[in-house]
């Protein structure tokens, strides 16, 4: 196996900042999924039940 060249090693501070960004992004994306689902139901209104079962 070929030797890997060491890249830039992140400092603890940089790792902490990256984690903070990742967590925020995950929360925002999760929130958007829930929001768009609720909006879809709200826009469909009573028609949400109008489908072949």
């Amino acid at each position: 196996m070929a030797d890997r060249k060491p890249g830039v090693v992140l400092s603890d501070e940089e790792v902490r900042k990256r984690r903070s960004r990742s967590v925020a992004l995950a929360l925002v994306l999760g929130g958007l999924v829930i929001l768009f689902f609720i909006v879809t139901i709200a826009k469909l209104g009573g028609n949400v039940m109008n489908r072949p079962l």
Binding site: L10, K17, R18, R21, A24
Partner: peptide, 15 residues
């Protein structure tokens, strides 16, 4: 930034 990664926290982006 030195690493090419962002140097900001989530709070910085919010600011």
């Amino acid at each position: 930034s030195r690493s090419g990664l962002s140097n900001g926290t989530a709070g910085d982006f919010f600011a």
